[in-house]
C-alpha cells in the first residue's frame, strides 16, 4: 500500500467544480429538497412537539431542535455524498478512472470530493438556517457564525464516508456504517435532547463521537448562548477531517492504482 502523505494542490478545485457543474443542472429539485425538508421538519416537529415540551435546556424546543438539526444535517448530507455519490463515481461510472488519465491524482480527487461533500453540507444547513429565521425558530444573528463550522463539520464526516466507499464491495455495505454509526449519532448525540439526560455511563462514549462536538459548537451559536471549549471541539472535528482524508487517500489509491 502507498502510505505516502497526500499532497493538497489547486487541482482539487477541478474535481470540486466538475461536481458543481453536475449539481447546477439539478439546481431546482435540489433547492426544493434543501428548503422543503427543513420547513416540514421544523414546522411539524418544532411546533407540534414544542407545544408539549415547551422549553428544553433553557431554550424553547422550537429553537433547541433546529439548532441540533443544523449539525446533523451537515453530517447526513456530507456522509451520503461521500458514500453513494463517491462510490458511484468510483465504481460503476468509472469517473475517477477517466480523471486518472489526466494530471489529477488520487490525492486531488479525494481532496476535491471532500470539499464538495462539505459544500453540500454547508448548503443544506444554510437552508435550515434560513428557514429557521423565516419561521422565527432562530432569532439571534450570531447564528451566522455557524457557517464556517458547517464546512468543517462537512469535512469531518466526508473523510470517513469516503473511507467506507473505498472499502465497500457494493452499495449494500453502506448499511453497516449507516446503522452502526450514523443513526446512533443522530439519535444519541443530542440533536433531540441534551446528552446529560442519558445514563451517566453512556456519556463518555457519546463524547468521543464527532456529532457531539459539532452540536457543542452549533447549538450555542444558533440559539444565542455562550460558546465553551471552542478549541477542543474544533480540534476534534479537524482531527476527524485530517485523519479521514489521509486514510481515504491511502484506501482509494489501493482501490484504483493497482
Amino acid at each position: 500500500m502507498d502510505w505516502c502523505l497526500p499532497k493538497v494542490r489547486m487541482s482539487m478545485f477541478a474535481v470540486w467544480s466538475r461536481n458543481f457543474r453536475v449539481w447546477r443542472k439539478l439546481i431546482l429539485p435540489s433547492t426544493l429538497f434543501n428548503f422543503g425538508e427543513p420547513f416540514i421538519y421544523l414546522l411539524g416537529l418544532g411546533l407540534g412537539l414544542g407545544s408539549f415540551i415547551g422549553e428544553m435546556d433553557g431554550v424553547p424546543y422550537l429553537t433547541f431542535l433546529p439548532s441540533g438539526l443544523l449539525a446533523s444535517s451537515v453530517m447526513n448530507t456530507a456522509t451520503y455524498e461521500g458514500l453513494f455519490s463517491v462510490y458511484t463515481r468510483m465504481v460503476p461510472q468509472q469517473t475517477y478512472e477517466g480523471m486518472l488519465a489526466t494530471p489529477l491524482e488520487v490525492d486531488d480527487i479525494v481532496a476535491g470530493e471532500m470539499l464538495w461533500c462539505a459544500t453540500k453540507g454547508l448548503m443544506s444547513s444554510s437552508a435550515i438556517l434560513v428557514v429557521g429565521f423565516l419561521i422565527g425558530a432562530l432569532q439571534d444573528w450570531q447564528a451566522i457564525f455557524c457557517l464556517p463550522f458547517f464546512f468543517l463539520i462537512g469535512l469531518c464526516f466526508a473523510g470517513p464516508a469516503i473511507v467506507v466507499s473505498s472499502l465497500a464491495p457494493s452499495y449494500d455495505y453502506f448499511n453497516y456504517y449507516v446503522t452502526l454509526l450514523l443513526t446512533p449519532m443522530f439519535i444519541f448525540c443530542g440533536v433531540f435532547y441534551p446528552v446529560r439526560t442519558l445514563p451517566d455511563f453512556i456519556e463518555p462514549f457519546i463524547q468521543v463521537l464527532p456529532l457531539s462536538h459539532a452540536i457543542a459548537l452549533v447549538r450555542p451559536l444558533a440559539s444565542g448562548q455562550p460558546l465553551h471549549n471552542v478549541l477542543l471541539h474544533v480540534c476534534v472535528l479537524a482531527a476527524f477531517a485530517g485523519i479521514g482524508f489521509y486514510l481515504a487517500v491511502v484506501l482509494v489509491r489501493r482501490r484504483l492504482i493497482n
Binding site: 487541482s11 468509472q94 477517466g98 494530471p103
Partner: peptide, 24 residues
C-alpha cells in the same frame, strides 16, 4: 481506454470542457 469511461453526467461538449479543466 479499453472500456469507455466518458462522464455520463454530461453532454458531449461538456465532457470535453470538463476534461480540459483537469489539465488546467
Amino acid at each position: 481506454p479499453q472500456l469507455d469511461n466518458l462522464d455520463v453526467d454530461f453532454t458531449v461538449i461538456e465532457n470535453l470542457k470538463v476534461y480540459a479543466s483537469f489539465f488546467a
